[in-house]
């Protein structure tokens, strides 16, 4: 498998707080990699650096052979990086179809794509995510599960090669959570995206991920097969709260 993302020794601090410290990781095309760690471990900060929300203080990020360390966020999206949010961030006054059309129109350079073409494209992704019947509902009026599905539809409409999925199960009931997990697995099969999956629930990563990376206090403390990570005494200790990386 070819390498799609390589993160080399990246660091990020906010004032005196070192949010991410000297972290490296790589992801191969077609993989699902889990990223886990306790609250405040630096998982979201790491993703924010890769997607371009935060500048990198040290280190570099390579995506499909391009150095994207200082690349504007929209260009990273055009290259094929997209994400969902742990706390959904819908466009509150746009309908579901309008929200997905934004991604279809702007997520990738497409020749001669009209507004109507984008709406048709958006319908396809809404159908895939089970939101076709909600296409004319405003973002602010959707339920949490529907918002999670909309986040995925919106991200898929940018035609990503690498998708960051941020804690899809948070706040969902067990039935909705399993539906959300299955939806992401189907998205991977249907669209061939590579996934970096941030998750607290180890059981999900055990099933979905080929590899797991563990962060703690901004540092990478473990990387390996899910079953090895689940049995790693140091990781277990960190989760129980007595280790210091």
């Amino acid at each position: 498998m070819s390498e799609i993302l390589r993160v080399n020794n990246v660091s990020k601090h906010f004032g005196g707080l070192m949010a991410v410290s000297d972290v490296s990781l790589s992801i191969n095309a077609g993989e699902t990699v889990g990223l886990m760690g306790p609250n405040g471990a630096g998982k979201t900060t790491l993703v924010n650096m890769i997607t371009g929300k935060y500048d990198v203080d040290a280190g570099d990020v390579q995506f499909m052979g391009h150095d994207i360390t200082k690349m504007p966020t929209y260009q990273r999206c055009h290259l094929g990086i997209s994400r969902t949010y742990q706390i959904p961030r819908p466009f509150p006054e746009l309908t579901a179809i309008g929200s997905v059309a934004v991604s279809a129109l702007h997520g990738k350079k497409r020749q001669n794509q009209s507004f109507e073409d984008a709406l048709t494209d958006a319908t396809h992704y809404l159908e895939f995510c089970g939101l076709f019947s909600k296409r004319n509902v405003l973002g602010k009026d959707l339920t949490l599960y529907e918002l999670r599905s909309l986040e995925l539809a919106r991200a898929l409409a940018t035609t990503p090669k690498l998708l960051f999925v941020d804690e899809v199960m948070a706040g969902l009931n067990p039935g909705e959570a399993m539906k959300a997990v299955r939806l992401i697995e189907r998205a991977k099969e249907e669209f061939g995206v590579t996934i970096l999956w941030i998750e607290h629930v180890m059981a999900v990563l055990m099933k979905a991920a080929q590899r797991v990376v563990v962060l703690h206090y901004g540092k990478k403390i473990a990387e390996g097969l899910p079953q090895d990570i689940a049995n790693d005494p140091f990781v277990i200790e960190c989760y129980l709260g007595s280790c210091h990386a």
Binding site: K53, F91, P92, E93, H106, T158
Partner: peptide, 26 residues
Amino acid sequence: LKTKTGLAVRAISYDLNTSKIMGIRV
């Protein structure tokens, strides 16, 4: 309401960072 650029303008007014993530040249 009816144009590609108009939709992008509205998206930015709702959420700047998400608009960037979705590929809009802000």
